[in-house]
Amino acid sequence: MRGLAETVAGWLLRISEMSAGQWVLRVAIVLSGALLLQLPTWWATFFFGPVLAGIGALMVLVSLLAPDSLAPVGLVAVVGAWWLMAGADNPLWQAAVLALLLGVFHLSCAWAASAPTHGVIRRRLARAMAGRAVAFLLVVAVGLALVLGAASLPALPGGLLWIGLGGLAVVGLAAVIIRPDRNT
């Protein structure tokens, strides 16, 4: 119990000493996370919805306090599983909205984890971060438009062959991106 009390006291101290820049990032985490859980509740209700919403809320809370932990991955998994199970018949624009919110949540977690909670973000860095955030969301929007465009094309013959080729393309792209190519 003492360890839990100390942990909670540590979280409360972190929140009380948070800098203005970190407040902005954490508010973005909370708002985007909340919307990522609320919108599927409206658009894609199903039996396990409340359970996933509860797990997702816990993930958002932990992401707020520890953005460098596994909690953000947990929320992505919750949203992905929800849409996989219950969003089959929903229009694609709803998935696009969720994707944009996911981008905001993911980037906010990445930046919030880059500095201590009490670390002051200097003004010129804050301006640069705002510019990068806008550019990131624009690129995401373009990517979403490309996928939506590809999805609207008529079905191609080949069946499983295309699934296999698609899977290989994804794995190959991942291998290129995460290739360890650094000077030692």
């Binding site: 694609l92 981008g103 980037l107 990131f136 995401v140 999805a151 991106i177």
Partner: peptide
């Protein structure tokens, strides 16, 4: 790709963009 769900592919787009940016 496995389930033929473009909606799920849309959810992967921001993560893939971030990974490409990081690379």
């Amino acid at each position: 790709v496995l389930f033929g769900r473009p909606g799920v592919a849309l959810l992967a787009v921001p993560l893939a963009v971030h990974a490409a940016w990081a690379w």
